[in-house]
Amino acid sequence: MAQADKKLHIGIDLGTSRSSTAADNGEKRWITSYVGWPKDFVAAQVVGKEVLFGDEALENRLSLQICRPLERGIIREGIERSEEAVKAIIRHLVELVSKDSDARIHAVVGVPAESLNINKLAIRKAVSEYVHSLMVVSEPFAVAYGMGQLKNAMVIDIGAGTTDFCIMHGAIPGEDDQRTNLNAGDHIDEQLFSNLSEKYPNATFNINMVRQFKEQYSFVGDIDDEIKVEIPVDGKPVMHDIKDEMRRACESILPALIETTAELIAGFDPEFQAKVKKNIILAGGGSLIRGIDGVLQEALKEYGSCKVTCVDDPLFAGSLGALKLAQDMPASYWETL
């Protein structure tokens, strides 16, 4: 039974490709967002667990029915499984940082801000068994809060499935302050994959390899270095120059990024616009693309002077922000929920 006086605050960033979790006991973990169940009895014997997560699930994928719980594609495989997967992964994320289970757990979960904006109830249902009190917030909002950027700021979270935009003006952001588009990491992977398939029709590679190339060499704009990677051709490893393909793939998200940023800002009064433009913050895995802050800042120039920066730790910016929210939240609020 939970002890009333012992509390543990947890912040969770639930992502399509990666999820992270942080608690005020100092624990901080992240996993790739995979969940896998043994395919059959034999597989269960082999892996020795009922359910596997993250890279461990990926490594055992031949024995598992595996999914990325929040991925769009999963829908086809049946709805129940993906609901179960979300539940399992949240539970796992809670357990990763809360070994000490007799504390009351107060958790804030950041989720992608989306258009239909009715996810909160579902998340709440999924985790109510594992935490004592819970709040759900939009992911970019959690990032902003964590950085103390409560007003005159814009956070752009370039994730795997979606890019989420959020304007901060001293209050909790509403619908008009947020946007989402689908030009994010997965989109770059697909572009890079097709660019490479076109240029090297005889080479064999898959989307995971391509993603690794991206995470190692991604860039936009101009760079001096060469980008050479090893891709097997007819079974033999051959070095290929993929600089052009990489640039084109990474830059493919720019038009929508620029346009959405400009449009969202344009909805506010001029004085506020000027302030927000001086404080645009990039977060999410996509903010690691080399040169992206500079290119965005340059592109937005035509709308007036801008300043674009990247968060220090994109992997944990969301979960640490959520944790900060959890800690700052008055106790009476937690008790009511």
Binding site: L121, R124, M135, V136, Y145, L150, A171, L337
Partner: peptide
């Protein structure tokens, strides 16, 4: 002023979540 803003935001988050709950 910052403190007030912060507590407004926290209350906003709380009420937002409460509303979701309250709907059911």
């Amino acid at each position: 002023r910052n403190l007030r803003m912060k507590s407004n935001i926290l209350r906003g988050v709380f009420e937002d979540n409460l509303r979701v709950l309250g709907r059911r």
